[in-house]
């Protein structure tokens, strides 16, 4: 897995006041920093350490991710939806890489 690729599932439409489920998964090896290579040297830590989800600029959900989390971390959470707008998902890795994905939702 050379490049990390986020996958998300957000409903395209919702009614005002609905509680919707948001599902996210990003491909990442999540190297914990605890393993050693064949020469016995430590493999440096390389994980996704932060995840945020914003809706129209306001934070809906965010968390720090620690080394014990498995490869390809999956996060699922819910949000109450009041207006149309855009969800912006951001994953930050140890080496400074930032992965983003966004999706619009329309409130009927």
């Amino acid at each position: 897995m050379a490049k990390s690729k986020p996958r998300i599932k957000v409903p395209k439409k919702a009614a005002k006041g609905d509680v919707i489920t948001l599902k996210t998964l990003i491909s990442h090896k999540m190297e914990s920093g605890q393993r050693k290579d064949k020469k016995g040297e430590k493999i440096p830590r390389q994980i996704i350490n932060k995840f945020t989800c914003e809706f129209n600029g306001a934070t809906v959900f965010s968390c720090d991710i620690e080394p014990a989390v498995s490869a390809n971390p999956y996060l699922q959470f819910t949000a109450k939806i009041e207006e149309s707008g855009e969800f912006q998902f951001t994953w930050t890795a140890d080496n400074g890489d930032v992965f983003k994905k966004s999706q619009k939702i329309t409130v009927a």
Partner: peptide, 14 residues
């Protein structure tokens, strides 16, 4: 059973 949760789909998409 859930195509979003199933991490195997990373390889399907690739």
């Amino acid at each position: 059973d859930d195509d979003i949760q199933n991490p195997g789909f990373i390889w399907v998409e690739q």
